[in-house]
C-alpha cells in the first residue's frame, strides 16, 4: 500500500456568515510534491491554508495530515500546527525579538528542543537562506525579501511535514520577489512538501508539480503547469490567465 498523501482535503467547506468561501474542496498533496493554487483575490485561497493550519475552523468535510483527520474537535490543534509550517503574506515576524529568537521561539517553547541545539539549527538554517550575520538584527532592520526569508526559516525550524505558503511575495517590491522565489526553488529541490497560494506565476511555472485554479470557492482545473497554464481547458482558467496577461503579470 502506498503512503497516504501528506495533506488531503476532502469536500472541505467554509462560510463566513452568508458568504461561502470554500465549496467542497478536494485536493491531495503527496510527499515531496509542490502544489500551487492560483486564483483571483477573494477566491478562498488563503482561507484554505488557514483551515489546514487550524487557524480557521472548517464547516464541513475533513482535512487529513498523513492519513489522520486533523479537523475533528478532539484533535490537539497545537500538536497539529507543530507539524505544519505556515508562511504569511505580511511575514508576521515578531518585532520585539531578533532574527535568531524569531526562528528559535517555536523550537524552544513549542517543541521543547534544548536552547543550544535550537540555536545551532537556527543558525545553520539562516545561513542556508543567505541570512548569515543578520541573526542579531531586528526584523524592522531587514528588507522585505530578507524578512520573508526569515519567516520561511522560522516555519522550517519546526521540521514541518509540509510548508503552507500564503501569498508570500505579494507584499514585496518587484525587485525583491526573485530573492524569495529562489529560496522556494531551493526548498523544492530539497523535496519539501508544499502547498502554495500565489499570484506569482513564477512559482506556479517553476516550482509547482501541479497547479490548480481556485474560482468561486472551488478548484475548477488542476494539473501540471504545462497544461493548466499553457493549455487550459476550463473557461474560468482561460479568463483568469487572460486577465493576468493583460495586467502584464505573466
Amino acid at each position: 500500500m502506498s503512503a497516504p498523501p501528506v495533506l488531503d482535503f476532502k469536500s472541505v467547506t467554509k462560510a463566513f456568515g452568508e458568504r461561502e468561501v470554500l465549496r467542497g474542496i478536494d485536493l491531495e498533496v503527496a510527499e515531496h510534491e509542490a502544489v500551487a493554487l492560483i486564483g483571483a483575490s477573494g477566491s478562498g485561497k488563503s482561507t484554505l491554508l488557514r483551515c489546514a493550519d487550524l487557524l480557521v475552523d472548517i464547516d464541513d468535510g475533513d482535512i487529513l495530515l498523513d492519513g489522520e483527520v486533523i479537523t475533528d474537535p478532539s484533535v490537539d490543534t497545537v500538536a497539529v500546527r507543530r507539524k505544519l509550517g505556515l508562511v504569511f503574506q505580511a511575514y508576521n515576524l515578531f518585532p520585539h525579538l531578533n532574527v535568531l529568537k524569531n526562528v528559535m521561539l517555536g523550537s524552544v517553547q513549542g517543541q521543547g528542543i534544548p536552547r543550544a541545539e535550537a540555536e545551532e539549527q537556527a543558525r545553520s538554517l539562516l545561513a542556508r537562506f543567505g541570512l548569515e550575520g543578520r541573526e542579531q538584527d531586528r526584523p524592522d532592520d531587514l528588507s522585505g525579501g530578507q524578512q520573508q526569508r526569515v519567516a520561511i526559516v522560522r516555519a522550517l525550524a519546526g521540521k514541518p511535514r509540509a510548508l503552507l505558503l500564503d501569498e508570500i511575495t505579494s507584499a514585496l517590491d518587484p525587485e525583491l520577489v526573485g530573492d524569495v522565489l529562489e529560496a522556494v526553488r531551493e526548498l523544492k529541490y530539497e523535496g519539501v512538501t508544499m502547498l502554495i497560494v500565489t499570484h506569482e506565476m513564477g512559482f506556479a511555472r517553476d516550482v509547482a508539480d501541479r497547479v490548480g485554479l481556485l474560482h468561486d470557492g472551488g478548484i475548477v482545473e488542476l494539473g501540471p503547469p504545462s497544461e493548466v497554464l499553457f493549455a487550459p481547458k476550463q473557461p474560468e482558467t482561460r479568463q483568469f490567465l487572460r486577465r493576468l496577461l493583460e495586467a502584464g503579470r505573466m
Binding site: 488557514r50 493550519d53 487557524l55 497545537v78 500546527r81 507543530r82 505544519l84 509550517g85 505556515l86 504569511f88 508576521n92 515576524l93 515578531f94 521561539l105 517555536g106 517553547q109 513549542g110 517543541q111 522560522r154 516555519a155 525550524a157 519546526g158
Partner: peptide, 9 residues
C-alpha cells in the same frame, strides 16, 4: 496567528 502557527499554545 504567527505565534499559534509556530506551535505555541
Amino acid at each position: 496567528d504567527a505565534a499559534r502557527a509556530i506551535g505555541l499554545t
